[in-house]
């Protein structure tokens, strides 16, 4: 589908192509800086331009050393290593639990006889509307009273809860597309609600499940505000909270190690994005556009 007139096509394509290549180069420039700087020693970082390699030490070896320094930290457990595992738990368990609970609720809301289903839907959906700030203070004190503060369980629960509303919204849309006839015939065959859900809805839901998992995983992995508010110790702090601490006032790992850690911290989500890019693109349209196709 070209809108460029044939005679001038090549001429235009070259211009547009150059524009977009320059654009991409500008866009990747900050990322390039990070990679280059992460391969420098502290002295090399100070004495060279941010976008140039510094060869006072072997960049590859230095890169490896910076990563180790970032993961392990300079003192007992101050690196992002343990936090990487913490965040893995939060992102995986939080996303999966949310999807399971949300799909049950979406199934009930779309296909089962429920009075006031719209009210229930609004209650569940309301979680996507407000800024996270409104939840912080009471959750903070609630966690404190129940002993959930600074535990992996507490953060997992909070992340699960924050993921549920959007999952309900998306899955409900998806389930509304299932022809009513299928549900009715299953009921006539004597299947219980749970059996219908399991045999008809779940197999049919794999595409949205995958999409939701990718998005919620990315969200939880990249979250910062819950992480800094609800966890203190290294046994429960998620990765982004620790990473922000690494570049803080009194940290002493050095800039190259901070940047190397930032690369490591970004790997899971970037790899997911590259591997599932089309799912991300489609999912984004659903997320923002509300269309279920």
């Amino acid at each position: 589908m070209f809108i460029i007139k044939k005679g001038k096509k090549i001429y235009w394509e070259v211009i547009l192509f150059s524009i977009i290549i320059i654009w991409v180069a500008v866009w990747l420039f900050p990322i390039w800086n990070v990679f280059v700087s992460a391969m420098k020693s502290i002295d090399g970082y100070i004495s060279s331009r941010p976008w140039e390699f510094s060869f006072d030490v072997n960049p590859i070896i230095q890169f490896y050393e910076n990563i180790v320094r970032g993961l392990a930290g300079t003192q007992r457990g101050s690196g992002i290593g343990p936090a990487f595992l913490n965040s893995m738990i939060y992102a995986t368990v939080g996303a999966i639990t949310a999807i399971i609970f949300a799909s049950l609720a979406a199934y009930a809301l779309s296909c089962l006889p429920i009075k006031g289903r719209f009210v229930f839907f609004l209650i569940l959906f309301s979680g996507t509307v407000f800024p996270l700030q409104i939840y912080l203070i009471p959750l903070f004190t609630f966690f404190q009273k129940t002993g959930l503060y600074d535990t992996k369980l507490g953060l997992t629960l909070a992340y699960t809860a924050i993921c549920i509303p959007f999952c309900v919204f998306l899955l409900r849309n998806w389930y509304l597309d299932i022809p009513k006839g299928i549900v009715e015939s299953a009921t006539i065959d004597g299947a219980t609600e749970l059996q219908t859900f399991w045999h008809i809805f779940v197999p049919f839901s794999m595409p949205p499940f995958v999409t939701l998992f990718l998005f919620q995983f990315t969200w939880v992995w990249n979250d910062f505000i819950f992480g800094i508010t609800f966890a203190r110790s290294r046994t429960s702090r998620p990765i982004m909270a620790l990473l922000a601490g690494l570049q803080n006032m009194y940290s002493n790992v050095g800039i190259p190690a901070v940047l190397a850690s930032a690369i490591i911290a970004s790997l899971p989500t970037v790899l997911l994005l590259v591997a599932f890019r089309n799912t991300f693109f489609k999912g984004l349209a659903v997320q923002y556009g509300g269309s279920s196709k």
């Binding site: 966890a231 690494l246 006032m249 009194y250 940290s251």
Partner: peptide, 14 residues
């Protein structure tokens, strides 16, 4: 054994 945190604001809060 010491356990130290580099982030002044969060240290106080937490």
């Amino acid at each position: 054994v010491p356990e130290s945190y580099p982030d002044l604001t969060n240290y106080q809060t937490n």
